[in-house]
Amino acid sequence: MSKVLVIAEHDGNKLNASTAKCVACASGIPDSEIHVVIFASAGEKLAADAAGLASVDKVMYVDNSSNEHALAAVLAPQIVSLAGDYTHIFGPSTTFGKDLMPRVAALLDVNQISDVMEVIGSHSFKRPIYAGNAILTVEAPEGTAVVATVRTASYRAVGNGGAAPVEQITVSADLPQHTRFVSLQAGKSDRPDLQTASKVVSGGRALASSENFEIIFRLAEALGAGVGASRAAVDAGYVPNELQVGQTGKIIAPDLYIAIGISGAIQHLTGIKDAGTIVAINKDADAPIFDVADIGLVGDLFKIIPELEKAIRS
């Protein structure tokens, strides 16, 4: 029997969808009991939300003003103090989990499994390496906790319908003062979130300016889609960094992905290979993006995109 502790990600008000995806991954471990822990300044409502997730057996929350902003150096010792008899400790492979979980693993003196994409058994997992060009099966040793991050694009969030008991707990851990939150500059959030949107429209270098990128935003609005970008478009300053899709940006799995003016470097394709349907629009008929696209259209994006927007709105 396995006992899995899932570290919840949230913004203080609501759970990030990555939490329900970690639970989905954890539920793939045979004969597992799943606990979710929330570290917050006021976690009662978040805990109630987590308790409603299917497959969750118990929710704990730790209220502490030091937990208002997620700082790995502050959270890690608290997680370690809870580690106890858990066989697995999971967090999402988002910037939150990528920052935090290795710190936890090192304090527990175990190696971490990053980006779990498939659970084969309680101690056997698949994960991508080399930007997804190879899939590695790793076996974790028995007898020590398995610390892992979950590749969220590989899992569908568990639904609601759970009714797990909730417990407020305290932890005894020395919390360091050497790391302090200063500020957060968040992107505009009136669009669907890139990581959870069912449709995403992405633009590349061919957009040629941030003004031109507006046509991507307009098409996305017509579709009710999130907006992404290639690394080239972000490097060129057309859009902010949080829109980058790919090996070093976000790994996403929308039902519909429309790549516009994106040639399809392997590092970009890594970020979208689990998408349902990929549409590519590019003026270069030889662009590698067409090798993976379900639907391709060769042509001038500055003519096609406004026409497509109009067709979708009508």
């Binding site: 790391t179 302090r180 500020s183 957060l184 500059q185 968040a186 990581q195 902010p240 960094n241 949080e242």
Partner: peptide
């Protein structure tokens, strides 16, 4: 003071 690229934007933290 370090600015960090996080999923929702840019976070700034201060470290010793």
């Amino acid at each position: 003071k370090v600015t960090r690229e996080v999923d929702i934007g840019l976070e700034t933290i201060e470290i010793d």
